[in-house]
Nucleic acid binder design. Structure first.
Lengths: 226, 226
DNA sequence: TTAATTTTTTAGATTTGTCTAAAATTTAAT
DNA sequence: ATTAAATTTTAGACAAATCTAAAAAATTAA
Protein backbone atom coordinates (compact mmCIF):
# COMPACT_ATOMS: atom_id res chain seq x y z
CA UNK A 1 0.00 0.00 0.00
CA UNK A 2 1.29 3.43 -0.95
CA UNK A 3 1.90 6.28 1.44
CA UNK A 4 -0.44 9.22 1.81
CA UNK A 5 -0.14 12.68 3.33
CA UNK A 6 -1.88 13.53 6.58
CA UNK A 7 -4.29 15.67 4.63
CA UNK A 8 -5.12 12.95 2.13
CA UNK A 9 -5.64 10.50 4.97
CA UNK A 10 -8.06 12.84 6.71
CA UNK A 11 -10.12 13.19 3.57
CA UNK A 12 -10.18 9.44 2.93
CA UNK A 13 -11.17 8.62 6.48
CA UNK A 14 -13.91 11.23 6.54
CA UNK A 15 -15.39 10.12 3.24
CA UNK A 16 -15.47 6.55 4.58
CA UNK A 17 -17.44 7.65 7.64
CA UNK A 18 -19.85 9.87 5.70
CA UNK A 19 -20.32 7.25 3.03
CA UNK A 20 -21.50 4.74 5.62
CA UNK A 21 -23.89 2.77 3.41
CA UNK A 22 -24.89 5.90 1.58
CA UNK A 23 -24.38 6.10 -2.12
CA UNK A 24 -22.26 9.20 -2.49
CA UNK A 25 -20.80 11.99 -0.41
CA UNK A 26 -21.25 15.62 -1.46
CA UNK A 27 -18.71 18.40 -1.61
CA UNK A 28 -20.44 20.54 1.00
CA UNK A 29 -20.90 17.69 3.46
CA UNK A 30 -17.21 16.89 3.30
CA UNK A 31 -16.15 20.54 3.48
CA UNK A 32 -18.27 21.09 6.57
CA UNK A 33 -17.03 17.97 8.33
CA UNK A 34 -13.39 18.79 7.63
CA UNK A 35 -13.92 22.47 8.47
CA UNK A 36 -12.53 23.48 5.14
CA UNK A 37 -13.96 25.12 2.02
CA UNK A 38 -15.80 23.41 -0.86
CA UNK A 39 -13.15 24.57 -3.32
CA UNK A 40 -10.46 22.78 -1.32
CA UNK A 41 -12.53 19.62 -1.36
CA UNK A 42 -12.85 19.71 -5.12
CA UNK A 43 -9.10 20.07 -5.47
CA UNK A 44 -8.45 17.10 -3.24
CA UNK A 45 -11.09 14.99 -4.97
CA UNK A 46 -9.24 15.41 -8.25
CA UNK A 47 -6.06 14.24 -6.64
CA UNK A 48 -7.63 11.24 -4.95
CA UNK A 49 -9.39 10.30 -8.15
CA UNK A 50 -6.07 10.40 -9.98
CA UNK A 51 -4.75 8.00 -7.34
CA UNK A 52 -7.75 5.74 -7.96
CA UNK A 53 -8.96 6.01 -4.40
CA UNK A 54 -12.40 7.28 -5.34
CA UNK A 55 -15.03 7.46 -8.02
CA UNK A 56 -15.73 11.04 -8.96
CA UNK A 57 -17.42 12.84 -11.82
CA UNK A 58 -17.78 16.63 -11.50
CA UNK A 59 -21.05 17.60 -9.80
CA UNK A 60 -21.88 13.95 -9.09
CA UNK A 61 -20.51 13.46 -5.57
CA UNK A 62 -17.92 10.80 -4.75
CA UNK A 63 -17.52 7.33 -3.35
CA UNK A 64 -14.41 5.43 -2.30
CA UNK A 65 -13.12 2.70 -4.58
CA UNK A 66 -12.32 -0.67 -3.03
CA UNK A 67 -8.72 0.46 -2.82
CA UNK A 68 -9.89 3.66 -1.12
CA UNK A 69 -11.88 1.67 1.41
CA UNK A 70 -8.86 -0.47 2.19
CA UNK A 71 -6.83 2.64 2.88
CA UNK A 72 -9.64 4.07 5.02
CA UNK A 73 -9.90 0.89 7.08
CA UNK A 74 -6.18 0.96 7.65
CA UNK A 75 -6.35 4.52 8.97
CA UNK A 76 -9.34 3.64 11.17
CA UNK A 77 -7.46 0.61 12.46
CA UNK A 78 -4.54 2.82 13.48
CA UNK A 79 -6.83 5.36 15.08
CA UNK A 80 -8.78 2.87 17.14
CA UNK A 81 -5.76 0.86 18.24
CA UNK A 82 -4.14 4.03 19.54
CA UNK A 83 -7.39 4.97 21.30
CA UNK A 84 -7.38 1.59 22.98
CA UNK A 85 -3.76 1.99 23.98
CA UNK A 86 -4.31 5.45 25.43
CA UNK A 87 -7.28 4.38 27.51
CA UNK A 88 -6.08 0.93 28.54
CA UNK A 89 -2.38 1.52 29.13
CA UNK A 90 -1.92 5.24 29.69
CA UNK A 91 -5.18 5.64 31.63
CA UNK A 92 -6.59 8.43 29.54
CA UNK A 93 -10.28 9.05 30.07
CA UNK A 94 -12.35 7.69 27.20
CA UNK A 95 -13.36 11.16 26.04
CA UNK A 96 -9.74 12.35 25.84
CA UNK A 97 -8.41 9.67 23.54
CA UNK A 98 -9.87 10.86 20.26
CA UNK A 99 -7.88 14.06 19.74
CA UNK A 100 -4.56 12.43 20.55
CA UNK A 101 -5.32 9.47 18.28
CA UNK A 102 -6.05 11.95 15.48
CA UNK A 103 -2.32 12.66 15.43
CA UNK A 104 -0.99 9.20 16.16
CA UNK A 105 -3.07 7.60 13.39
CA UNK A 106 -0.89 9.26 10.75
CA UNK A 107 2.26 7.45 11.83
CA UNK A 108 1.95 4.75 9.25
CA UNK A 109 4.58 2.12 9.99
CA UNK A 110 2.90 -1.21 9.26
CA UNK A 111 5.17 -3.01 11.65
CA UNK A 112 4.47 -0.54 14.44
CA UNK A 113 0.73 -1.03 14.18
CA UNK A 114 0.86 -4.80 13.94
CA UNK A 115 3.14 -5.01 16.96
CA UNK A 116 0.95 -2.59 18.87
CA UNK A 117 -2.06 -4.76 18.03
CA UNK A 118 -0.26 -7.83 19.31
CA UNK A 119 0.88 -6.02 22.46
CA UNK A 120 -2.67 -4.93 23.20
CA UNK A 121 -3.96 -8.49 22.74
CA UNK A 122 -5.80 -7.94 19.46
CA UNK A 123 -8.65 -5.89 20.92
CA UNK A 124 -11.93 -5.99 18.99
CA UNK A 125 -13.41 -2.66 20.11
CA UNK A 126 -12.05 0.76 20.97
CA UNK A 127 -13.03 2.70 24.13
CA UNK A 128 -16.05 4.17 22.32
CA UNK A 129 -17.29 0.69 21.44
CA UNK A 130 -16.39 1.03 17.78
CA UNK A 131 -14.98 -2.11 16.16
CA UNK A 132 -11.24 -2.20 15.38
CA UNK A 133 -10.38 -3.56 11.91
CA UNK A 134 -7.78 -6.35 11.94
CA UNK A 135 -4.69 -6.27 9.74
CA UNK A 136 -6.82 -7.44 6.79
CA UNK A 137 -9.45 -4.76 7.30
CA UNK A 138 -12.06 -7.12 8.75
CA UNK A 139 -13.88 -6.08 11.86
CA UNK A 140 -16.43 -7.43 14.27
CA UNK A 141 -19.90 -6.97 12.82
CA UNK A 142 -19.35 -4.04 10.55
CA UNK A 143 -23.10 -3.43 10.77
CA UNK A 144 -23.85 -6.46 8.66
CA UNK A 145 -27.58 -7.07 8.42
CA UNK A 146 -29.76 -9.30 6.24
CA UNK A 147 -31.93 -7.70 3.60
CA UNK A 148 -35.10 -8.32 5.61
CA UNK A 149 -33.77 -6.21 8.48
CA UNK A 150 -32.57 -3.38 6.27
CA UNK A 151 -34.58 -0.15 6.82
CA UNK A 152 -36.52 1.13 3.81
CA UNK A 153 -34.67 3.38 1.35
CA UNK A 154 -31.36 2.89 3.10
CA UNK A 155 -28.69 2.29 0.47
CA UNK A 156 -26.45 -0.68 1.26
CA UNK A 157 -23.96 -2.99 -0.35
CA UNK A 158 -24.26 -6.75 -0.70
CA UNK A 159 -21.45 -8.38 1.26
CA UNK A 160 -22.45 -11.99 1.91
CA UNK A 161 -24.85 -14.61 0.59
CA UNK A 162 -25.24 -17.55 2.93
CA UNK A 163 -27.40 -19.80 0.76
CA UNK A 164 -26.21 -21.31 -2.47
CA UNK A 165 -29.52 -22.87 -3.61
CA UNK A 166 -30.32 -23.01 -7.30
CA UNK A 167 -33.10 -20.52 -6.74
CA UNK A 168 -30.67 -18.08 -5.15
CA UNK A 169 -28.05 -18.49 -7.85
CA UNK A 170 -30.65 -17.93 -10.53
CA UNK A 171 -31.86 -14.79 -8.81
CA UNK A 172 -28.36 -13.39 -8.47
CA UNK A 173 -27.47 -14.22 -12.02
CA UNK A 174 -30.68 -12.96 -13.54
CA UNK A 175 -30.71 -9.68 -11.64
CA UNK A 176 -26.96 -9.26 -11.90
CA UNK A 177 -26.46 -9.08 -8.14
CA UNK A 178 -22.91 -9.61 -6.89
CA UNK A 179 -20.89 -8.96 -3.80
CA UNK A 180 -20.53 -5.19 -3.87
CA UNK A 181 -23.81 -4.49 -5.66
CA UNK A 182 -25.49 -1.47 -4.14
CA UNK A 183 -29.23 -1.53 -3.59
CA UNK A 184 -32.02 -0.45 -1.30
CA UNK A 185 -35.32 -1.88 -0.09
CA UNK A 186 -38.29 0.19 -1.32
CA UNK A 187 -41.24 -1.65 0.21
CA UNK A 188 -42.08 -4.71 2.29
CA UNK A 189 -45.17 -6.74 1.47
CA UNK A 190 -46.68 -8.64 4.35
CA UNK A 191 -49.37 -10.41 2.34
CA UNK A 192 -47.01 -12.59 0.30
CA UNK A 193 -43.81 -12.29 2.37
CA UNK A 194 -41.84 -10.49 -0.27
CA UNK A 195 -39.79 -7.28 -0.38
CA UNK A 196 -39.28 -4.86 -3.22
CA UNK A 197 -35.73 -4.05 -4.13
CA UNK A 198 -34.16 -1.48 -6.36
CA UNK A 199 -30.59 -1.71 -7.62
CA UNK A 200 -28.63 1.52 -7.65
CA UNK A 201 -26.82 2.63 -10.75
CA UNK A 202 -23.20 1.76 -11.17
CA UNK A 203 -20.55 1.73 -13.85
CA UNK A 204 -21.77 -1.69 -15.00
CA UNK A 205 -25.45 -0.79 -14.98
CA UNK A 206 -25.46 2.85 -15.96
CA UNK A 207 -29.16 2.91 -16.87
CA UNK A 208 -31.86 3.01 -14.21
CA UNK A 209 -33.45 -0.42 -13.67
CA UNK A 210 -37.01 -0.93 -12.44
CA UNK A 211 -37.50 -2.34 -8.93
CA UNK A 212 -38.36 -6.01 -8.48
CA UNK A 213 -39.53 -8.26 -5.68
CA UNK A 214 -37.90 -11.25 -4.00
CA UNK A 215 -39.15 -13.60 -1.32
CA UNK A 216 -38.34 -13.08 2.33
CA UNK A 217 -36.89 -16.59 2.27
CA UNK A 218 -34.19 -15.53 -0.14
CA UNK A 219 -33.79 -12.05 1.35
CA UNK A 220 -32.97 -13.57 4.74
CA UNK A 221 -29.85 -15.07 3.22
CA UNK A 222 -28.48 -11.94 1.61
CA UNK A 223 -26.39 -9.74 3.89
CA UNK A 224 -25.44 -6.13 3.36
CA UNK A 225 -23.16 -3.53 4.89
CA UNK A 226 -24.79 -0.27 5.86
CA UNK B 1 5.66 26.28 24.83
CA UNK B 2 4.58 27.06 21.30
CA UNK B 3 3.95 24.53 18.59
CA UNK B 4 6.38 23.88 15.76
CA UNK B 5 6.12 22.16 12.41
CA UNK B 6 7.74 18.78 11.84
CA UNK B 7 10.31 20.48 9.66
CA UNK B 8 11.15 23.12 12.24
CA UNK B 9 11.47 20.43 14.90
CA UNK B 10 13.88 18.44 12.76
CA UNK B 11 16.09 21.47 12.28
CA UNK B 12 16.06 22.35 15.98
CA UNK B 13 16.87 18.81 17.06
CA UNK B 14 19.69 18.48 14.56
CA UNK B 15 21.25 21.79 15.51
CA UNK B 16 21.18 20.68 19.14
CA UNK B 17 23.04 17.49 18.32
CA UNK B 18 25.62 19.16 16.07
CA UNK B 19 26.12 21.97 18.56
CA UNK B 20 27.07 19.50 21.27
CA UNK B 21 29.43 21.72 23.21
CA UNK B 22 30.68 23.29 20.01
CA UNK B 23 30.41 26.96 19.49
CA UNK B 24 28.36 27.26 16.32
CA UNK B 25 26.90 25.10 13.59
CA UNK B 26 27.51 25.90 9.93
CA UNK B 27 25.09 25.96 7.04
CA UNK B 28 26.78 23.16 5.13
CA UNK B 29 27.03 20.88 8.17
CA UNK B 30 23.34 21.21 8.82
CA UNK B 31 22.39 20.82 5.16
CA UNK B 32 24.39 17.63 4.90
CA UNK B 33 22.98 16.14 8.09
CA UNK B 34 19.41 16.91 7.08
CA UNK B 35 20.03 15.81 3.51
CA UNK B 36 18.82 19.10 2.20
CA UNK B 37 20.42 22.04 0.40
CA UNK B 38 22.30 24.96 2.00
CA UNK B 39 19.78 27.43 0.57
CA UNK B 40 16.97 25.67 2.40
CA UNK B 41 18.92 25.84 5.63
CA UNK B 42 19.40 29.58 5.30
CA UNK B 43 15.67 30.05 4.77
CA UNK B 44 14.83 28.04 7.87
CA UNK B 45 17.47 29.80 9.97
CA UNK B 46 15.78 33.13 9.25
CA UNK B 47 12.50 31.70 10.40
CA UNK B 48 13.91 30.18 13.57
CA UNK B 49 15.76 33.36 14.37
CA UNK B 50 12.51 35.32 14.03
CA UNK B 51 11.02 32.89 16.54
CA UNK B 52 13.95 33.54 18.87
CA UNK B 53 15.04 29.92 18.87
CA UNK B 54 18.55 30.64 17.67
CA UNK B 55 21.29 33.19 17.41
CA UNK B 56 22.14 33.87 13.81
CA UNK B 57 23.98 36.53 11.86
CA UNK B 58 24.49 35.97 8.12
CA UNK B 59 27.72 34.09 7.39
CA UNK B 60 28.38 33.56 11.12
CA UNK B 61 26.84 30.16 11.78
CA UNK B 62 24.16 29.60 14.39
CA UNK B 63 23.59 28.44 17.96
CA UNK B 64 20.37 27.66 19.80
CA UNK B 65 19.10 30.17 22.34
CA UNK B 66 18.12 28.87 25.76
CA UNK B 67 14.56 28.73 24.51
CA UNK B 68 15.75 26.78 21.47
CA UNK B 69 17.58 24.31 23.70
CA UNK B 70 14.44 23.79 25.76
CA UNK B 71 12.49 22.98 22.64
CA UNK B 72 15.25 20.64 21.45
CA UNK B 73 15.31 18.79 24.77
CA UNK B 74 11.56 18.35 24.60
CA UNK B 75 11.81 16.79 21.14
CA UNK B 76 14.66 14.55 22.27
CA UNK B 77 12.62 13.53 25.30
CA UNK B 78 9.75 12.50 23.07
CA UNK B 79 12.07 10.63 20.72
CA UNK B 80 13.83 8.65 23.42
CA UNK B 81 10.69 7.82 25.36
CA UNK B 82 9.13 6.36 22.22
CA UNK B 83 12.34 4.43 21.53
CA UNK B 84 12.16 2.98 25.01
CA UNK B 85 8.50 2.09 24.54
CA UNK B 86 9.12 0.41 21.20
CA UNK B 87 11.96 -1.73 22.52
CA UNK B 88 10.59 -2.48 25.98
CA UNK B 89 6.90 -2.97 25.28
CA UNK B 90 6.56 -3.75 21.58
CA UNK B 91 9.75 -5.83 21.44
CA UNK B 92 11.35 -3.99 18.58
CA UNK B 93 15.03 -4.69 18.15
CA UNK B 94 17.17 -1.83 19.40
CA UNK B 95 18.35 -0.95 15.90
CA UNK B 96 14.79 -0.68 14.56
CA UNK B 97 13.43 1.85 17.02
CA UNK B 98 15.08 4.98 15.67
CA UNK B 99 13.23 5.38 12.37
CA UNK B 100 9.83 4.80 13.93
CA UNK B 101 10.56 7.22 16.76
CA UNK B 102 11.49 9.82 14.14
CA UNK B 103 7.79 9.98 13.28
CA UNK B 104 6.31 9.53 16.74
CA UNK B 105 8.44 12.32 18.23
CA UNK B 106 6.45 14.92 16.33
CA UNK B 107 3.19 14.08 18.08
CA UNK B 108 3.48 16.81 20.61
CA UNK B 109 0.74 16.36 23.19
CA UNK B 110 2.33 17.24 26.52
CA UNK B 111 -0.11 15.04 28.39
CA UNK B 112 0.59 12.08 26.12
CA UNK B 113 4.30 12.24 26.74
CA UNK B 114 4.05 12.73 30.49
CA UNK B 115 1.63 9.81 30.80
CA UNK B 116 3.84 7.68 28.58
CA UNK B 117 6.80 8.54 30.81
CA UNK B 118 4.83 7.53 33.89
CA UNK B 119 3.63 4.31 32.22
CA UNK B 120 7.19 3.35 31.35
CA UNK B 121 8.37 4.00 34.91
CA UNK B 122 10.36 7.17 34.22
CA UNK B 123 13.22 5.47 32.37
CA UNK B 124 16.56 7.28 32.47
CA UNK B 125 18.13 5.89 29.29
CA UNK B 126 16.85 4.85 25.88
CA UNK B 127 17.79 1.54 24.20
CA UNK B 128 20.93 3.12 22.73
CA UNK B 129 22.06 4.19 26.19
CA UNK B 130 21.34 7.85 25.59
CA UNK B 131 19.86 9.71 28.55
CA UNK B 132 16.17 10.66 28.45
CA UNK B 133 15.40 14.24 29.54
CA UNK B 134 12.70 14.51 32.22
CA UNK B 135 9.73 16.82 31.88
CA UNK B 136 11.92 19.74 32.95
CA UNK B 137 14.64 18.95 30.43
CA UNK B 138 17.07 17.53 32.98
CA UNK B 139 18.81 14.29 32.21
CA UNK B 140 21.14 11.84 33.84
CA UNK B 141 24.72 12.98 33.43
CA UNK B 142 24.49 14.79 30.17
CA UNK B 143 28.20 14.08 29.73
CA UNK B 144 29.09 16.24 32.66
CA UNK B 145 32.82 16.14 33.31
CA UNK B 146 35.15 18.20 35.40
CA UNK B 147 37.61 20.53 33.70
CA UNK B 148 40.56 18.25 34.46
CA UNK B 149 38.95 15.43 32.49
CA UNK B 150 37.99 17.56 29.53
CA UNK B 151 39.93 16.65 26.35
CA UNK B 152 42.16 19.36 24.93
CA UNK B 153 40.59 21.85 22.52
CA UNK B 154 37.10 20.47 23.09
CA UNK B 155 34.70 23.38 23.50
CA UNK B 156 32.39 22.98 26.48
CA UNK B 157 30.03 24.95 28.66
CA UNK B 158 30.36 25.49 32.40
CA UNK B 159 27.36 23.89 34.11
CA UNK B 160 28.27 23.37 37.75
CA UNK B 161 30.78 24.59 40.34
CA UNK B 162 30.96 22.40 43.42
CA UNK B 163 33.28 24.47 45.55
CA UNK B 164 32.42 27.90 46.87
CA UNK B 165 35.79 28.78 48.39
CA UNK B 166 36.96 32.38 48.35
CA UNK B 167 39.70 31.42 45.92
CA UNK B 168 37.13 29.96 43.53
CA UNK B 169 34.79 32.91 43.76
CA UNK B 170 37.64 35.27 43.09
CA UNK B 171 38.70 33.28 40.05
CA UNK B 172 35.16 33.17 38.63
CA UNK B 173 34.64 36.86 39.25
CA UNK B 174 37.99 37.96 37.95
CA UNK B 175 37.86 35.91 34.78
CA UNK B 176 34.14 36.49 34.28
CA UNK B 177 33.28 32.80 34.32
CA UNK B 178 29.61 31.93 34.88
CA UNK B 179 27.29 29.00 34.39
CA UNK B 180 26.95 28.90 30.63
CA UNK B 181 30.38 30.33 29.86
CA UNK B 182 31.93 28.49 26.94
CA UNK B 183 35.58 27.58 27.07
CA UNK B 184 38.18 24.98 26.16
CA UNK B 185 41.34 23.54 27.69
CA UNK B 186 44.43 24.35 25.61
CA UNK B 187 47.21 22.66 27.56
CA UNK B 188 47.84 20.69 30.74
CA UNK B 189 50.99 21.29 32.74
CA UNK B 190 52.21 18.40 34.82
CA UNK B 191 55.07 20.22 36.50
CA UNK B 192 52.92 22.61 38.54
CA UNK B 193 49.53 20.87 38.33
CA UNK B 194 47.83 23.59 36.33
CA UNK B 195 45.82 23.71 33.13
CA UNK B 196 45.60 26.43 30.54
CA UNK B 197 42.14 27.63 29.65
CA UNK B 198 40.79 29.83 26.92
CA UNK B 199 37.36 31.44 27.02
CA UNK B 200 35.41 31.46 23.80
CA UNK B 201 33.95 34.64 22.47
CA UNK B 202 30.38 35.49 23.29
CA UNK B 203 28.00 38.39 23.07
CA UNK B 204 29.24 39.60 26.46
CA UNK B 205 32.91 39.21 25.61
CA UNK B 206 33.09 39.94 21.91
CA UNK B 207 36.83 40.46 21.86
CA UNK B 208 39.31 37.60 21.96
CA UNK B 209 40.83 37.12 25.44
CA UNK B 210 44.25 35.59 26.07
CA UNK B 211 44.38 32.11 27.69
CA UNK B 212 45.18 31.81 31.37
CA UNK B 213 46.09 29.04 33.82
CA UNK B 214 44.29 27.71 36.86
CA UNK B 215 45.26 25.05 39.39
CA UNK B 216 44.08 21.46 39.07
CA UNK B 217 42.64 21.89 42.56
CA UNK B 218 40.20 24.49 41.32
CA UNK B 219 39.66 22.84 37.92
CA UNK B 220 38.48 19.65 39.60
CA UNK B 221 35.51 21.52 40.99
CA UNK B 222 34.35 23.10 37.77
CA UNK B 223 32.04 20.91 35.68
CA UNK B 224 31.17 21.32 32.04
CA UNK B 225 28.77 19.87 29.48
CA UNK B 226 30.30 18.60 26.28
C1' DT C 1 47.87 40.73 -0.61
C1' DT C 2 45.72 39.51 -4.46
C1' DA C 3 43.60 35.67 -6.66
C1' DA C 4 41.29 31.31 -6.42
C1' DT C 5 38.30 28.48 -3.90
C1' DT C 6 34.79 27.45 -0.75
C1' DT C 7 30.83 28.74 1.83
C1' DT C 8 26.71 31.15 2.34
C1' DT C 9 23.00 33.95 0.83
C1' DT C 10 19.68 35.83 -2.55
C1' DA C 11 16.47 35.52 -6.32
C1' DG C 12 13.20 33.14 -8.53
C1' DA C 13 10.67 28.70 -9.41
C1' DT C 14 7.99 24.48 -7.74
C1' DT C 15 4.79 21.54 -4.96
C1' DT C 16 1.16 20.86 -1.59
C1' DG C 17 -2.71 22.39 0.54
C1' DT C 18 -5.35 26.07 1.35
C1' DC C 19 -8.27 30.35 0.36
C1' DT C 20 -11.67 34.01 -2.10
C1' DA C 21 -14.37 35.43 -5.80
C1' DA C 22 -16.55 34.41 -9.90
C1' DA C 23 -18.46 31.14 -13.25
C1' DA C 24 -20.83 26.85 -14.26
C1' DT C 25 -24.09 23.39 -13.14
C1' DT C 26 -27.77 21.27 -10.70
C1' DT C 27 -31.91 21.50 -7.91
C1' DA C 28 -36.06 23.64 -6.29
C1' DA C 29 -39.91 26.72 -6.80
C1' DT C 30 -43.26 29.35 -8.96
C1' DA D 1 -40.81 25.30 -18.15
C1' DT D 2 -38.58 29.11 -16.75
C1' DT D 3 -36.60 31.41 -13.11
C1' DA D 4 -34.46 31.60 -8.63
C1' DA D 5 -31.55 29.47 -5.31
C1' DA D 6 -28.20 26.37 -3.90
C1' DT D 7 -24.23 23.62 -4.96
C1' DT D 8 -20.00 22.76 -7.16
C1' DT D 9 -16.15 23.91 -9.94
C1' DT D 10 -12.66 27.04 -11.95
C1' DA D 11 -9.35 30.68 -11.83
C1' DG D 12 -6.08 32.98 -9.48
C1' DA D 13 -3.61 33.97 -5.12
C1' DC D 14 -0.97 32.71 -0.92
C1' DA D 15 2.02 30.35 2.74
C1' DA D 16 5.30 26.66 3.83
C1' DA D 17 9.11 24.11 2.50
C1' DT D 18 11.85 22.92 -0.86
C1' DC D 19 14.98 23.42 -5.13
C1' DT D 20 18.51 25.49 -8.84
C1' DA D 21 21.39 28.99 -10.45
C1' DA D 22 23.69 33.09 -9.65
C1' DA D 23 25.65 36.62 -6.58
C1' DA D 24 28.04 37.91 -2.35
C1' DA D 25 31.12 37.11 1.42
C1' DA D 26 34.65 34.62 3.75
C1' DT D 27 38.55 31.65 3.62
C1' DT D 28 42.72 29.70 1.66
C1' DA D 29 46.69 29.73 -1.11
C1' DA D 30 50.05 31.40 -4.18
Amino acid sequence: MLNFSTSEENYIKTIFHLQNGQNTVTTNELAERLRTKPASVTDMMKKLKAKKLLHYQPYQGFRLTNEGKKVALDIIRRHRLWEFFLAEKLKFKWDEVHVVAEDLEHVSSRKLIDKLDEYLGYPKFDPHGDPIPDSLGKMENSEQVSLVELPLNKPAEVCRVVNQSEEMLELLQHKKINIGTRLEVKRKFGFDHSIEIKLRQSKRTPSEQPPFSISEQLAKNIFVNL
